[in-house]
């Protein structure tokens, strides 16, 4: 690409970044306001709305549920997704093509339709309790990441290394753990991060699956907003942004952020 850009284009891009980042700065400002209503610029500086988060038991409880669901759902999706991705690459020629399409269905079907259908079938018809329903729903929601991202890493894996290990007498599972897995590590980490972020931010599936007593943080935030419009929500949002910063630091340290443009 040519290296010189027209100043009008440069100015346009600068405005786009202002558009992208200003709302987040505004949330940070609003969270620090010493008023009982949401306002920006903040009037008087105070951390009391951050303290207020910890007074509201529902936020703490739902944050824990969100983390549990994200870890268990993502873990489950990797547990069933990695073997599927492996088979799709290792036996690419022999396996039918529809099989790989099958694993992207959770992206193709609208999330809200998926959530509603899960509520009807597993929560109501099959009588599964709320917590396992949430885990299964989230595991399936993020399954495409596990299969596709790990699969992309396996596509560049040289399976003759694996054959070498096996022909030297290494049993299949040990070969996978000590030869294949270290080679696709980056893909597994990437899949984990993308899946985890998707799960922890999910609204459309969770909104149907959360039930009495058990809710996730995003759903709790929505419920809180319907009753109160105070800076507490801004403070919770700031804490969630800090989580995002943490995730980005992990991405940068393990894969480099440029992996996200690939």
């Amino acid at each position: 690409m040519p290296t010189r850009i027209h100043p009008v284009l440069g100015a346009f891009a600068a405005l786009v970044f202002l558009f992208l980042l200003a709302p987040l700065v505004i949330i940070i400002g609003a969270s620090l306001s010493d008023t009982t209503y949401l306002t920006f610029p903040p009037q008087g500086l105070s951390l009391r709305w951050f303290a207020n988060i910890f007074q509201i038991e529902a936020f703490r409880r739902t944050a824990i549920t969100s983390l549990q669901v994200a870890f268990l759902g993502t873990g489950l999706s990797l547990l069933i997704g990695i073997p599927a991705a492996y088979a799709l690459n290792r036996y690419r020629v022999e396996l039918p093509r529809w099989l790989s399409t099958l694993f992207v269905l959770p992206i193709l079907v609208p999330e809200i339709v998926f959530g509603f259908s899960l509520l009807k079938s597993i929560t109501i018809a099959a009588g599964l309790p709320v917590f396992p329903s949430l885990i299964l729903g989230h595991a399936l929601l993020v399954l495409p990441y596990s299969v596709r991202v790990v699969g992309a890493s396996l596509a560049s894996f040289d399976f003759s290394i694996e054959e070498a290990a096996m022909s030297l007498g290494c049993p299949p599972l040990k070969t996978f753990m000590t030869v294949v897995l270290p080679n696709i590590q980056a893909g597994v980490i990437a899949a984990f991060i993308l899946a985890f972020i998707t799960s922890i931010n999910d609204v459309s599936v969770s909104v149907f699956l959360t039930g009495p007593g058990i809710s996730t943080l995003p759903i709790q935030i929505l419920a809180h907003m319907e009753q109160f419009f105070d800076p507490t929500i801004a403070s919770v949002s700031v804490l969630l942004m800090l989580v995002t910063v943490g995730v980005m630091a992990i991405v940068e340290a393990t894969l480099g952020l440029t992996f996200l443009t690939k």
Binding site: P23, I27, I221, F229, L240, M241
Partner: peptide, 16 residues
């Protein structure tokens, strides 16, 4: 950064 921030947080900003 905004991409990884949740949809609830990003929509909430526009309420303010």
């Amino acid at each position: 950064f905004p991409l990884l921030t949740g949809v609830v947080v990003r929509s909430f900003a526009w309420l303010i």
